[in-house]
Nucleic acid binder design. Sequence first.
DNA 1: CGGATCATTGACCGAGCTCAATAGCTGTGG
DNA 2: CCACAGCTATTGAGCTCGGTCAATGATCCG
Lengths: 209, 209
Amino acid sequence: LDEAGLDHIHSHIASLSLAPGETVYQRGEQGAAVYTVRSGVVRFERVTERGDRRIVRLAGPGDLIGQESVVSRVHGDDAVACTEVELCRIPCHLLSEMSAREPALLHELMSRWQRALDSAEAWVTDLTTGPARRRVLRLLLKLSDYTSAQGEIWLPSREEMGAMLDMSVETASRLISALRREGVLQTPGLRTVRVQGEVLTRALAAEDA
Amino acid sequence: LDEAGLDHIHSHIASLSLAPGETVYQRGEQGAAVYTVRSGVVRFERVTERGDRRIVRLAGPGDLIGQESVVSRVHGDDAVACTEVELCRIPCHLLSEMSAREPALLHELMSRWQRALDSAEAWVTDLTTGPARRRVLRLLLKLSDYTSAQGEIWLPSREEMGAMLDMSVETASRLISALRREGVLQTPGLRTVRVQGEVLTRALAAEDA
DNA sequence: CGGATCATTGACCGAGCTCAATAGCTGTGG
DNA sequence: CCACAGCTATTGAGCTCGGTCAATGATCCG
């Protein structure tokens, strides 16, 4: 890409930051851009027929979100910031322009789609299977991918955990408390958790035995 | 596309049919082709750390499977025929050739990816949420999308239902029996089921109330 | 006909839900 | 600076849904 091209691109890419709870987009909207996550965690949620929220996937640094806009599909879920989040907003028309010049970009785009699909399928096996305690441990393992520079991991509210793992807030709370007592995790702040990967892995192995 | 082009394509596209239980591909393999489903139902399954099978998604007529091969990713799950299945096998190199000539094809491909992602996310909200009876009813609703020409719907074995809905075979059996007694469904054959959409919808509404 | 596999049904029990009370934390206004 | 209101998290008590174990039918071949 030449100099003028880069300028053109930058002038159209906006970076934006969201506070926890703010939404990137909502179900049913027709988006005009895709976003890359620079920092923080974004959740995708849907509402069941019965009316309860269910979190179906997470995205973290490096992930692409809102791809459906590229194929002119309306968003199928709400995308909401879980933590402080920094995003890059890339308009779809820009993406089209760029990919016309650089076909490898399309390959990359498809690759991201597959990554999202993978993570949605893994969600089912990891977080909706087996006893509650195991699901909580697997969630912690997944969240540890999003460890911050200071070595702290975002700990969802109990209600969020419930929506991710399909359990009541009480059960989530009981299990986190139990793990704290057992020394598997510490909670320096209300929304942060610290675990030793080693200990977590051992706890999971014990669970799966 | 000209005449010669079509010949070229047809000479490379093979249609194949699988018996129930035969696999299209396996986890970890590096596929060289994608497949479209012409008839029948294909399941995608993964194995949890603990060793139990979990079905994470289904594909039916019109769906594309094995897209990950396009971006040179190994398959993340096993694809297995649930029923008698007819597939079209499209080698990836052919897909590349064609999409170079016809860019709309790439758009279509991405659209299929999004459809798969959608269906994986819907799986979580529909089939892993709430009490067992509700999950069974929602599964029947989903399967009714694959109703055959004779108005019969494929009914999974109880073990398969267990792997889809994360429940024991006994619970699946009990619930199917109960629904049969209540007149919500009939099972003319062991692996086929007949339901009135109307009745099913009402049963679900009662459930969600 | 005998053996194998899958579905059904029963009895019992425990994980996790519901309801309810208590404890912490945060912000707001006096 | 303190008191109070509004959340969220924690903990307890009791009950139910669904799991486990086990026995009995139903089907399908060989």
